[in-house]
Simulated assay, not measured.
Amino acid sequence: MPITGGCRCGTIRYDIALDALPLVYACHCRDCQTWSGSAFALHAMLPEAILSLDPGAHRFRLDDVEQMPSEHLGCARCMTRIANRNSAVPGMIILRAGTLDRSNEVVPAIHIWTSSAQPWVTLPDKSPAFEKTPTPAEFQVALAK
């Protein structure tokens, strides 16, 4: 049974070819705080081939304002950003975990950009945490734990 999700208004839906919820990480960088309007954003990095996104998804880029220019995918009607892709992780897509139908079941496995975390945020003692973006090898090791 695929994992499903979609935008706030229900116009754009997706399926992920997984049997269980993906591993999720929390990013505390200032960009994610601003994008989410919260203290951090929850993401899942997935092989793009396992995501089946409604072909009507709106695509846009903000090359002149992003440190790592990305193509963003979401809903033009309700402005929900569902995922993005960029050249730093070819073949992968970064899913906004809050768009999962079962988002209430996700718990971040890793915390990144903790150097920008809000001072009132308390990180779990046992979760791997990185002050900035971990290397791909560090990220994989932390996810495997």
Rank of each mutant, 00 (worst) to 15 (best):
I110C: 07
P47Y: 00
H111K: 00
M1K: 09
G37Y: 02
A76F: 06
M45W: 15
Y14P: 07
T34E: 15
P108V: 00
H58S: 05
P55I: 08
E131G: 11
L42H: 08
M92V: 06
A142F: 03
A41M: 15
A83E: 07
L46C: 05
F130T: 01
E66Q: 10
P119Y: 06
A17I: 05
Q67P: 10
M79K: 13
A142N: 03
P22Y: 00
S38M: 08
R13M: 04
C9Q: 04
T4F: 03
R77S: 09
P136Q: 03
D54N: 12
I112G: 03
C7D: 06
G37T: 00
G56W: 10
P2V: 08
M1A: 11
M68F: 15
V65E: 15
S70H: 07
V65N: 12
S38W: 10
Q140Y: 13
A17Q: 13
E71R: 08
R85I: 07
P90L: 04
I110V: 14
L46S: 03
D15R: 15
L18W: 09
A57S: 09
E105Q: 11
G56Q: 10
L123Y: 13
W120L: 08
R85S: 05
M68R: 14
K132F: 15
G56A: 12
Y25L: 14
C9R: 05
T4D: 05
E48W: 09
R8S: 10
W113T: 05
A97E: 08
P55K: 05
A88M: 11
P136H: 09
I94Y: 11
I12M: 02
E48C: 12
A57Q: 07
G10C: 04
T135S: 14
S103I: 00
A39L: 12
Q67W: 13
E131D: 15
T11W: 11
H111I: 01
V106F: 04
P119H: 12
G74D: 06
S36H: 11
E131A: 14
P22C: 00
N86T: 05
R96G: 02
L100V: 10
R77V: 15
D63C: 01
I12H: 02
I12L: 00
I50C: 15
H28M: 06
N84G: 09
P69S: 03
T80M: 12
A109W: 11
R61M: 13
L95H: 06
A117P: 10
